[in-house]
Design a protein around this nucleic acid. Structure first.
Length: 117
DNA sequence: CTGATGACTGATA
DNA sequence: CTATCAGCCATCA
């Protein structure tokens, strides 16, 4: 059988986490890493996207923790990510996504933004 | 081994 | 608000 390395299974978990981001929403690198079971591996997620990104992977839904596009303004990646997000109905102003468009925590998805009785 | 780099993050000024 | 610093982790010279 194939010898699946830890790195590959890790990568698959990260890709799965990214795919789990609903269209019209975005998540931070740190959030993706955490949901993939890799806390504090935000840079690993970034490096993975940079080197091994897959076809069909909604990488454009991954932004920085502050909602900003990770690419430099004016770069190809920036322009492409911005366009694809807007295509999904996400407002991107000054290279930034509004806070409410973020998929904060898993808890928030399950419990809702204002479950406080 | 050390040091630099990167699609990062949080704290501080 | 922006600018800088330190922490973090994987890879490379």
């Amino acid at each position: 059988m194939s010898a699946i390395t830890d790195s590959e299974s890790t990568a698959q978990r990260i890709f799965a986490a990214i795919r789990s981001i609903p269209a019209g929403s975005v998540a931070a690198y740190g959030e993706v890493a955490e949901r993939a079971g890799l806390p504090r591996r935000a840079r690993l997620v970034a490096r993975l996207l940079s080197q091994r990104s897959e076809a069909g992977l909604p990488w454009h839904r991954v932004v920085r923790a502050d909602g900003r596009i990770a690419f430099a303004p004016g770069s190809e990646g920036f322009d492409l990510q911005c366009a694809r997000l807007r295509d999904e109905g996400v407002a991107v102003l000054a290279g930034r996504v509004h806070r409410e468009r973020r998929v904060a925590t898993l808890d928030e998805q399950l419990w809702g933004p204002s479950t406080r009785s």
